[in-house]
Design a protein around this nucleic acid. Structure first.
Lengths: 192, 192, 192, 192
DNA sequence: TATGAATGAGACTTCATTCAT
DNA sequence: AATGAATGAAGTCTCATTCAT
């Protein structure tokens, strides 16, 4: 019995948790929440099914953690977009959005999928409401600084556009004029 | 010879089918496809589980019928929007969209949910692609007639907006400025 | 209401029964008893499911009738084999057997399948026992007339051979030396 | 690290597997494959339905394991029959066959039943073909050594006889002259 | 005589979760 | 902390049989 220090234990814990969360995110983003089983996640993470219940109360709880992690990551990236010039900042946001969509379409799929399950997962609804509001306010501020007319309404439009373009790109994929839309939106809103 | 006439049988059949489709639509739109079981649908429709398989080959087949019905209804309503004046037509489309969203938000939820399951339901993807393309072309034509600049790109934006506004309204519901967006969009595109 | 005569009704009955029995035999011989549903039989016979229960108490009862019919037909064919010369008669039996196997292997499959279900279908066991005994006695008589040694035991062997060759031919099919076995057996037993 | 040692787990697994296979064999051999449900097997084995799918992918997979086990056992017993004297070897085979039939008639029933389902279970057909060929060649070799005329054809007959006697014994049971046939065959082929 | 809509029991299978070790 | 055997509820689907007409 080698007694492990508190620190070692904590390290092991966070390592296992990370492995589980990574595997879960990968699989759930790819196949959807319902279509991904606990067994699959455990196998992919290289841990036992039992261990998962050591760290997460349930499959739903695991999802919750997943979402929170992803949102925190999203916030971090959003902050990097901020520049002194509001046009520049808005452009960065557009570029960031389109690149995310190109590189991680499955993650967008997951976010959208979950937003539709508001009556099953209340926490998703809560988080989404808050985030959505924040973004709209932030973008509205940028548009106002830029001097774009009707900044509040246009910010709401842009926010909706992100979700809408996301969905359509997921469905149509190759046939969606992603590059053209990116250029067009940047021209329209940032070179005003 | 026949104890029940052809007509009687057809009537019984369509009544049962209607009961099933109605119950299925109600439940699936509300809770999602996966979350709705055949048992629930049968119970809600007031028929036995077995009968469902008299009329639909599988749960997926039932969904297919559901979608086809909904799309046919959507097309019908879309056609009613057409007027001689392109601005008027576009306005009708906006009004139609926002009213649909207000009256049948669950229906939009279902459509969006299914569009995300392109891996599982190819037929949904196929239909969605086609419809999406049709709508964009149609709206682009209207915008061109109206003389709106960049009609193709703007039509693509509007198409995306419909999906985006739809999803956001589903999430935020009461807090979404649906009326304001309706007025704003109509002013922006139809009173150009 | 055109009153149908007793005779007409009887004719209709036997026609329907024949259609059902033919279709049932065809399908059950081809796919097996369990794998054939009442619905399939009804559709193939061109009658309603309900009508089947007018003439047969159950699926099992239908099977019973089927077997009895087939056995009667078998008896009839067997009788045709009888000749004044016992060697000739035995040869006819061999020829008849191998031809049956070639032309209607599925029927043999069915007979064998049912013989294995003796605990499910008692009547099969009863009938099979009786027939088997009859055949052995008959063939033993022929062998005795021919002067073949150990006629009783050899008759038992031949009876078993029929079943065994049947099974093996069903399994191996193309690879089974059916022609060679026919020639060999006829030579062995009939040209003694 | 592991709470149960590798060995313990393996033991638990094989115990459960054995319980399941034994119960499955017992029931399927007795009542047939279709007539035996997973529920029955689970109950008889004293495990839950779910556990069965921990060890076998499907009902068919379970059957496959069953067959492979039985065949391996059969091969092992066959090998024990081999002696330096071909007559002795052949006699051992006859004795082995008749004893098997006496002691495990249900097992023969199962093998025969499955051989007839070549459409449904390809793997059975494959195995049966191979085994049958092997046996015929082996017995033909023995007969040749013994100096029995037409060894190839007679080997084919004996192979067929095994299947035929098997099935007839299953049907007639008490009334089948099993002992007499055994004596007769051994005398005929081994004391040549 | 004839129909086929309707039933309900039961089939196979999946999977989140528990628990002894 | 970690394992994975085991459970049981629930899911989709099939089918022999009944019955109102």
């Amino acid at each position: 019995m080698s007694p492990r220090s508190q620190k070692q234990i904590e390290q092991i814990r966070s390592q296992s948790i990370k492995k589980i969360l990574d595997a879960a995110f990968e699989l759930i983003a790819k196949h959807g929440y319902e279509a991904t089983s606990i067994s699959q996640i455990a196998k992919s993470a290289g841990v036992s099914k039992g261990l998962m219940y050591n760290y997460f109360d349930s499959k739903e709880d695991l999802l919750k953690e997943l979402i929170n992690n992803a949102l925190a990551e999203g916030d971090r990236l959003m902050k990097e977009a901020i520049s002194a010039d509001p046009s520049e900042t808005l452009k960065n946001i557009f570029v960031w959005f389109f690149n995310e969509l190109r590189k991680h379409p499955k993650q967008w799929r997951l976010i959208t999928e979950l937003m539709l399950k508001i009556d099953k997962f209340e926490f998703v609804s809560e988080v989404a409401k808050r985030k959505m509001g924040d973004y709209v306010v932030f973008i509205a501020g940028l548009l106002e600084e830029i001097g774009f007319p009707n900044p509040k309404e246009e910010a709401q439009l842009i926010s909706g556009l992100f979700d809408g373009i996301g969905i359509q790109y997921l469905v149509v994929h190759q046939d969606y004029p992603l590059d053209e839309m990116e250029t067009y939106l940047i021209n329209k809103y940032c070179n005003y």
